[in-house]
């Protein structure tokens, strides 16, 4: 028996509306390609480039947040709205709560500092390391950026090498460049 897409959609809506999900996810379209977005009752848990909601993604969410993981556009609608505004250039700061479950304490401190780097500006791995009181940990900061669970919203694209080179980005260097250009940080 095939469940119609309308019936399916209504169930997913109801499940999210009733607050019964440990994590709701969806794949949202963006100018830099599809983004896998997952939200829990505590906040935004994941953004992944090119994510397609594969079984692996879903399993990871279940391990982090609990088994009640469901594709539910409604659960990510606020995140999607703010991302759309960001890409349209009308939003310079996100008002989203983040859920940093599964992130180690050092990384959490680095990400908290990263969140303070303003729109349209860049910083370096070394400067960020110094801010968290570990001036020689630029490399470790690089690793944290590389594993950032919530790119774009936690703006690791604003972190560049000390010589100004873009160095690396999980979504690809062209994406990093595009985000910085959108923000007017590079021309």
């Amino acid at each position: 028996m095939t469940v119609t897409s309308d019936l399916d959609r209504r169930f997913r809506e109801a499940a999210a509306a009733a607050g019964l999900l440990d994590a709701g996810f969806d794949v949202v379209e963006s100018p830099i390609g599809p983004l896998f977005v997952a939200v829990t009752p505590r906040g935004l848990l994941r953004i992944e480039f090119g994510g397609n909601g594969s079984e692996e993604h879903v399993e990871l969410l279940a391990r982090l947040a609990g088994p009640r993981v469901l594709r539910a556009p409604r659960a990510v609608s606020e995140t999607k709205r703010e991302l759309d505004q960001y890409f349209a250039g009308t939003r310079h700061a996100f008002d989203l709560t983040v859920d940093l479950r599964g992130v180690r304490p050092f990384a959490e401190r680095v990400l908290a500092e990263l969140a303070r780097v303003p729109y349209g500006e860049t910083t370096t791995y070394g400067a960020l390391a110094a801010k968290v009181g570990a001036p020689r940990a630029a490399r470790a900061v690089g690793t944290v950026m590389n594993r950032n669970p919530i790119p774009i919203v936690l703006p690791c694209h604003r972190v560049v090498g000390s010589n100004g080179s873009l160095t690396g980005y999980a979504g690809g260097l062209h994406v990093k460049e595009r985000l910085l250009r959108l923000e007017g940080a590079i021309i």
Binding site: M1, T2, V3, D8, F11, L21, E55, V58, E59, L61, A62, R63, L64, A65, G66, P67, R68, V69, L70, R71, G102
Partner: peptide, 19 residues
Amino acid sequence: MQRVNVPPFESFYAEHRGE
């Protein structure tokens, strides 16, 4: 991390909704 004894609800739902 929680210990998960059951599959993610998404998989459970996908598998049984038709029946």
